[in-house]
Design a protein around this nucleic acid. Structure first.
Lengths: 100, 100
DNA sequence: TTTAGACTTGACTTATTTAGGTCAAATGTA
DNA sequence: TACATTTGACCTAAATAAGTCAAGTCTAAA
């Protein structure tokens, strides 16, 4: 699940058109279309608005936002999965020793 | 293990000083110092040179190079691990359906 | 079959960030 | 002291962010 998919899902579940949601987010509808198709990214502040509008978890949206960004970076990489492991181990390592 | 750590390890194992390796990579030694401390990133082409110099796996270096970059993006994120999961699932999903 | 509305796409823009450094001064250390 | 390393300030070119807008496509219904 990408952020674009999630936003489309939320929007359609609430019976909203792109033009409506776009206007609430104060962006053009062409831009929102691209966001839903993961061709463009929203500003992070927009996630707050979305979580309020659809009453859904902001953390989840943020995980999708960052995750989709990471995916864009590695999607054509041979070493994609190993790179993810490297990053994961560093995160866990830092957590373990509580490094600030 | 980050790319910086790996490079330092390889360099020290071969008894080389920063100034020497830096010169072989055609960069300044101050810059290499920062690379080893993950404050700066090498160009990708440099990895090839390093793998030749120390006779080590290029894929491994690339995984570390990308992985360290991913880590830099998420290291201060609350949702770091979940974001990694999102990216991982997308990679695996795409693999499963062999999407080009 | 044409037309309206929803959506997608391509070309373009501008401002900000990032990449990839340099250099000199400060620090560590034998 | 001399050498290895680190750090801070600075720099430029290239890339990315975050859009706009108009034209094109798709689909249902009149």
């Amino acid at each position: 699940m990408t952020l674009g998919q999630k936003i489309r899902e939320l929007r359609e579940q609430s019976g909203m058109f792109q033009r409506e949601l776009a206007s609430k987010l104060e962006i053009g509808d062409g831009f929102l279309s691209k966001v839903e198709n993961n061709q463009k990214t929203l500003k992070r502040e927009h996630l707050i608005k979305i979580s309020e509008l659809f009453n859904c978890s902001l953390s989840e949206l943020e995980a999708l936002w960052i995750g989709t960004k990471l995916y864009e970076i590695i999607k054509d990489e041979q070493e994609a999965l190993n790179a993810l492991k490297v990053a994961e181990q560093e995160i866990k390592y830092r957590k373990q020793y509580d490094i600030l």
